[in-house]
Every structure is written in structure tokens, then in C-alpha cells.
Nucleic acid binder design. Structure first.
Lengths: 346, 346
DNA sequence: TTGAAAGCGCTAACAC
DNA sequence: GTGTTAGCGCTTTCAA
């Protein structure tokens, strides 16, 4: 039986009690708990039995105090950009990360970094090796120095999405270039001749990469660059609508558009409809993200799927690996393949 | 200057060092840090100065070890249902919770509970007063005993959404009944006479509540209950499409539908279009959730907005309040108002 | 009002 | 292989 305190809260058994019940010293009990090989099988069994009997669970605080490791990993998400990401993206990544953390018995601490106001030191204070063993960064801002600040404190970091101009960073990204290239190539393969694009914001790596992929596809087909086939949006529906209208003005002869995000693609669909163009009859459209909206739009949107849950998994596994290795100096990177999901719009 | 270890990792200053620099005892320094009133002003200032100078941050592990409080709150989300929730719902709630945690200097530990397989003891082991001070539960399953198990361990709980048949629980919910009632009443007020509904799953509280609200609106208008005006969906687009088809078969004379979720409403819109009915000409439609899809559907969907971020805030604040109060025995509950967002579909 | 000291539960270094 | 012991950094009596 475990004791209990005055307020009725059950008192967790300590390692001391486990050791006593098993008839061994505290040190030995600790060795068993931590899987040290230097323990006699029968001793191990006795301790295991006592652990089970008492329902012993190690006190993480006590453990952290001496090991100087916390068992926790922070997931840091910068707020403003979070909205831009299609929500399933976020949810999927978190699911992947969470799975890995569970498998390794680690805790996931969620840290949302909001506007500049609180940015000064709030999240900073907590994000230290004293509280978390490492951090996963999602949707960092271009030019934000948070990653560097965290690294300076001795935190091991893994970025979701390739951080621009940061050679020493470790990161996992989806193949935005390849996905965009494939989407544009698909349009070309279907016989479209004048393929335009609605690009994402040039200050976002994903935006730049997807534009590059589009250009590569055209180049591979021997089609020269044409600035009036490119219009920039901000990843939102309204931005896509505006960009499509501009394209229509510039090049009324276009017969296909690769749009760098699904929300923008929906806006483009609307603009096309308003302009009296049929999809995919007059103009074929391909989006990017494979958001739920893409499946229920009219017509359903052909789009590029990203392995979001796997992105999360890979990030988490990369971080845990970096934490384990003797010297984590080495920077790693992984690029995950995307795939085209064909539907009615192209 | 703070010291540093062999590996170059900066060594955080300890309370001991702060006390030494301030020329006081460790106990006094501790009192200042924790805002004890029994400290002379000048002593306090000296300590504060030392804290600032050294960049001292309390070691949470050491603190937890003695106080038996962790400073952490768990956010527990049951996976399967998570998908049913419109994603912005989830993201918004998390944002609200996170804000409050930041304001109180607390950590948010994210725990995703997946299928029965790992359900046995995995999340259970970590979710104890030894590791977190309390837990916020989102989208629990009907009949799941996790809440009870956590309570038995002495964890203080707050539910997001009213837990059915649990009188002792504390919870925050949005006014599903009122929101649905208002939506149906709106349809009636616009002159619609035959208002049907596509209800959510009867095993979800939100599904039941929204159906009840619909019924109350009809009753208030003196319209008798009519089973063939009610069709049940599963909160998905496909479910909504099917339910709409059933309704059309049963009651081809209907001129309005209140749909219990936006994804289902989009499905209903599709079914109506396929059946050659115009919206809102022939049939007016109102959804529920105010998801992003609602704004970009064709026609744009009138829907019921839920204050998601505030839901998160209220949950977090309720939990922290329960933790603070001397006796947390009292169970609390809050219902947040919803609002109708009018668009083109009704 | 303050300092000294006990100890929270655990790991790891050291003896045996 | 195993027991013993010294702290990890902090809060909180208990005296002064």
C-alpha cells in the first residue's frame, strides 16, 4: 500500500520504498530502473516486482535535478505565420511529433510565440536547457533571431522547413521545389501550353521554393521565362483572387495556373468563375497543400500533398538523435517527397 | 559573469550565487524571488539587483522537488475526435490556453491520446500530480473513463465541452443550444416555413445540443415536431451530403436547412446543387462553426461562430483558479455565447 | 526580519 | 554486482 497525505492525495512511492521492498540498496534499484546492464538478473527481477507492486513512477523533478536533463522537448510555433499554414498542416505535424515523443517517453511542451511585444524575453526565459532538452521550431520568421538565441543558450534545435541562410541549422522540409515542379509538369503533360503561376510571398522559403519548381518545369519543357505569367499572392484566398485577376489582365491567353497554396487556388477559382472562364475547360488549376477545402471545392482541386505527419515524425526523431549522439555539432537535413493528388480541376 | 562547463554550455547561476552577490542568506533570497512580504525593502532591492545582474532563472526541477507542484498544465486531446473538430477550433483553443499560461508563467504540456492500444497506461503514467498540476481535457470520448482515472490520482481537471452525465466535473462550453436555436430562428424570421436540420452524431454532446436548439426554435414558433425534417450526419462533408439527399427524398418541400457543422453544410450545398435546387433561392442553409471554408464556399455560408480562443482562455483560467483556491471541491461551469455570421446562403 | 539547516527523490561516484 | 554517500537547487521550518 502506498501512504496518503492528509488531503487524501495518494502519496507516490519513492525509490527508497521500492529498494526496501526488494531488499536492495537505493543505488541498485536506480540501476534497474535505468536499465543498467551491471545488475544480476535475480536482483533485477526483485526490483521490477517491487516496482509493479508499488506502482512506482520515477519523480522527474528529482531526476532532472541530478541529471540536468529534463525529458522534455519544446515545440515552438511563431504565431503570425501559424495562420498562414493550412491548419491540417499544423495538426498533422503535431500528431507526428507527439507520436515520437510518446514512443520515447518524453514530454512535449507547447510554446506559442506571439507578437513582438512579449517576444522580448518571455518565451526566452523558459526555453533553456534548464527546462527543456531541445526544441522543435515551426514556422520561424525570416530574419528572426530566436533560433540563434536559443542555440546560444545551449539548446539543440531542429527546424520544420528549411531556414534560409543558416548553414549550421538542422532541419526537415517537404520537397516544395519538386512538388511545384511536378504540378507544373503535370499541366504541361496534359497539353496546356500557357501555364501561369500564382506564387507565395517571396519572403517565405516555401513561397520561393514553389516558384522555383514551377520555373524548373517550364525550363525543362523548353519554355522561356515570362514575367507576366507570374503573379504573387500572400497565401490567402483573397490574395489568390487578386493575383488571378492580374494574371487574367496580363495574359488572357493562359490556359493553366499552378497556385502555390490551396486557399489561393480557391480564390483563383472564384476569379476565373467571375471572369466567365470554365475550369478545367478553359483554364486548368493545380493547388498546393491538399487541404480539406481542396477536396470539397467546385470543381475539386488537384493539389500537391505534403506528408505532414511524417514531417513531424522526422523532426522529432532528428532532434532526439542529435540529443543522443556524443557530439551534436553535425547539422542534418531531410527533404520529404510530396505527391500530386489529381482531382477535377486539371 | 556566469560560469561555464567544459562543453561550453553556459552554467546557469543558482540561488546561492544570487544570495552571495546580494550579501544575504539563501533563504532570504528565496523569499524575495517568491514575493514573500516579510522582507525589508532594501534587502529585496539588493536581491532583485543580483537577480538581474546574474540573469538568474529559478530551476523548476529543484523547486518542484520541494513544493510538489510542477508549474505545468497538461492539455489532453483525444485523437479520434480531434479530426471531427474543425481545425480552426483546435488551433484557436490552444492559442487561448497558451496565452493564459504565458501570463501566469506556466508551461503547457501537450498530450495526444491515441487509440485504445496505447491507452492502457501510457498517458496515464505521465498524467499525475507528480508531473503536472492539472489538466485541460479537449474532446473526450463519451464513456471514456480517463477523466475519472485522472481525478482519482488527485489531478484537478477542466473539460472543454460539457461532459455528459458528470455532475462533479468543471467545464467550459460554447452555447451550442443557443447558437442552434438562433440559427433556426433566423431561418424562420426570414420567412422560411419548412426548416429541416442535419444533426450531428447523437453520441456527441455538441450534436445533441445543436439538435435541441433547433427544436426549441421550432417549438417557440409553434411548429410541431416532424421527424422527417431531421437527418443525422457524422460532422463530415460526405455525411452532410448523404443526409441532405435523405431529407430531399423525405421532404421535397423543405425550404431551409440548419446544418450542425460547416463541413456537413458544404456537403448539403453540394447535394442541393446536384438536385437542381438553388441556394438560397429554393433552400436557405445555415451551418455551424464558422470555419474558413464557410467564407469561401459558393454561396458563402451563413454560420454560427464560436468564440474558440475565449473558450481556451476560460478553460485555462478556470483551471488555474481551481488550483489556487483552498478547496477545489467546488465544480464550476461556464457557457460562452455564440453568434450568427450572415452570408449569402440564407 | 533574517540566517542556518534539513531535506524533497534521485543519480552517479566510490568503495567494497 | 551492490551498498553507501554526496550532492543536484530549492523551499521552509526553526531559532535567533
Amino acid at each position: 500500500m502506498t501512504g496518503s497525505r492528509a488531503d487524501g492525495t495518494p502519496q507516490r512511492p519513492t525509490l527508497e520504498q521500492v529498494a526496501a521492498l526488494a531488499g536492495v540498496g537505493r543505488g541498485t534499484a536506480s540501476r534497474v530502473i535505468n536499465g543498467s546492464p551491471a545488475v544480476a538478473p535475480q536482483t533485477r527481477d526483485a526490483v521490477m516486482k517491487a516496482v509493479a507492486e508499488l506502482g512506482y513512477v520515477p519523480n522527474q523533478a528529482a531526476r532532472s535535478l541530478v541529471t540536468r536533463r529534463t525529458g522534455a522537448i519544446a515545440l515552438v510555433i511563431s504565431e503570425p505565420e501559424e495562420r498562414l499554414f493550412s491548419e491540417p498542416f499544423f495538426a498533422g505535424v503535431v500528431r507526428g511529433i507527439s507520436r515520437v515523443m510518446d514512443e520515447h517517453g518524453r514530454q512535449l511542451v507547447l510554446v506559442l510565440v506571439h507578437g513582438a511585444a512579449e517576444r522580448t524575453d518571455e518565451p526566452a526565459a523558459y526555453l533553456s536547457p534548464q527546462h527543456v532538452d531541445g526544441a522543435l521550431l515551426l514556422s520561424q520568421h525570416e530574419g528572426d533571431d530566436l533560433p540563434q538565441r536559443l542555440r546560444d543558450r545551449g539548446l539543440t534545435l531542429v527546424h520544420g522547413g528549411r531556414p534560409p541562410g543558416d548553414e549550421q541549422a538542422s532541419w526537415v522540409d517537404v520537397d516544395n521545389v519538386g512538388g511545384a515542379r511536378g504540378a507544373a509538369a503535370h499541366l504541361l503533360a496534359r497539353g496546356r501550353t500557357t501555364v501561369a503561376t500564382i506564387a507565395g510571398p517571396p519572403d517565405m522559403q516555401a513561397g520561393r521554393d514553389r516558384l522555383q519548381g514551377y520555373r524548373e518545369a517550364l525550363a525543362a519543357a523548353g519554355i522561356p521565362d515570362s514575367p507576366d505569367l507570374v503573379s504573387v499572392g500572400d497565401f490567402t484566398e483573397l490574395g489568390g483572387w487578386r493575383a488571378m485577376r492580374r494574371l487574367l489582365e496580363q495574359r488572357s491567353d493562359l490556359d493553366a495556373v499552378f497556385v502555390a497554396s490551396d486557399p489561393m487556388a480557391l480564390g483563383a477559382l472564384r476569379a476565373l468563375r467571375e471572369a466567365g472562364r470554365t475550369v478545367p475547360g478553359d483554364v486548368a488549376v493545380v493547388g498546393f497543400d491538399d487541404s480539406p477545402m481542396a477536396a470539397v471545392s467546385d470543381p475539386p482541386l488537384t493539389t500537391v500533398n505534403q506528408p505532414v505527419e511524417r514531417l513531424g515524425r522526422e523532426m522529432a526523431e532528428m532532434l532526439l538523435a542529435s540529443l543522443t549522439e556524443s557530439e551534436a555539432a553535425e547539422s542534418r537535413s531531410v527533404v520529404l517527397p510530396t505527391s500530386l493528388v489529381q482531382r477535377g480541376s486539371s
